[in-house]
Design a protein around this nucleic acid. Sequence first.
DNA 1: ATAATTCTTTGACTTTAGGCAAATAAATGG
DNA 2: CCATTTATTTGCCTAAAGTCAAAGAATTAT
Lengths: 227, 227
Amino acid sequence: MKDFDLLFEQNPVFSALSEDKKQLVKKTGISKRFSKGEMIAIDGDIWPYLFLITKGNVHALKSSMEGRNLVVTTFIEGDIFWGLAFFYEHMPMPVSLEVAVNTSIMLWSAENLVPILKSEGASAWELSRLMVYKMMRASEILEEMTFQPVAGRLAKLLIDTVRNQQNGPVTRSLTLDEMAARIGSTREMVCRFLHRFADDGIIDITRTEFRVMDSQKLALVAQNTKG
Amino acid sequence: MKDFDLLFEQNPVFSALSEDKKQLVKKTGISKRFSKGEMIAIDGDIWPYLFLITKGNVHALKSSMEGRNLVVTTFIEGDIFWGLAFFYEHMPMPVSLEVAVNTSIMLWSAENLVPILKSEGASAWELSRLMVYKMMRASEILEEMTFQPVAGRLAKLLIDTVRNQQNGPVTRSLTLDEMAARIGSTREMVCRFLHRFADDGIIDITRTEFRVMDSQKLALVAQNTKG
DNA sequence: ATAATTCTTTGACTTTAGGCAAATAAATGG
DNA sequence: CCATTTATTTGCCTAAAGTCAAAGAATTAT
């Protein structure tokens, strides 16, 4: 866990503030802790806050009226996020924020923070950029969900998972349900495709771990080359 | 077509500028015209501009490597939009911008406009809000495409179409292909569901026009009530 | 008006995804 | 270590969406 001051300084929005505003902002922030599984805010809430994660991970998730969930994105230490109501008074949250592991955040209300941001062009500008970045991510997800079949999305997920690991066999850290939530499918489908990949020699898989055998082929599947 | 000055003043980002900056911005804008079907920018382009539509309509569309297209949103007179590279130097466009009808725009390069926005907190703040709004729309689209079946998406499209029309029979202004592009499906599917709706007494349809007969039922279908 | 083109409509068939249920393996808590 | 719970794996079946092809109607160009 990094120091709060460090994370604060590393954030483009906060670091663009003038010194005195920085101090003011630091003072008005409220520190909170959540345990795994708790919800910071729920889809539909009017939640006029902006927060910085000082430790842990938070999932942004959408859920349909049936059971299916989609983990749209995961926020990590140092990230900031907000409720729509931070920007538009009466707007409801488009996602729920679920705490993935024990997490600490620093929280600001719109009431306190907005006047400060408005007064500092550089900071507001950085905020715009951040938004654009999030929008880009949303756009990518939309594209994947719309045009990519399940196999491609799963392949992409595997690549992302392995990227952060060493090369050898990897303990399966996500359950099938968790993988399914990340690609917008079901555990059964994920299971089937994993084994299909294994049949094709792309991965090796046991009930508890897996290893990418042919990352090239995997990349092809992720790019939808149905060869 | 409204006067450019009026549109400029009505735009939250520009209207938040101070008077002298407004004049400066107006001077640096470049006016352009496009005819129906022309592309302002193409998916993947590095396009560091922001524009205001002074007349006409522009579609933002994603396309998969097969034929399928998705009209993510339509910009109308008074709207502003931008390339990602306006905010992040090397970032490619996530969508193509296709001119839907003859259109005039006013165009600003990042080089000219960014320094001005940065210097004015209120304006940059409005830009952030605009982003948030777009993000919200993207989020809605994602949710619809992911959790709503085709029938629901089509019902919603019909409701939106009729909203902007009088009550009686409406000339079918969109082709099946155009409708399909807006809901992320195919012309055949759209055709089938339209006729299914007709069988259910929800709409009346001929080859050239249609009329909503039971807007309540239509709304139910749009909300996924499968009853 | 006629021909050419563009749209619409339908039927038959394929693919993709998902649901349900049962069997089995692993992990967890006494 | 045993019992219980949680995950994984598969087979079988259904539903949703899409493709292909062909026929017919409207529109546009000549």
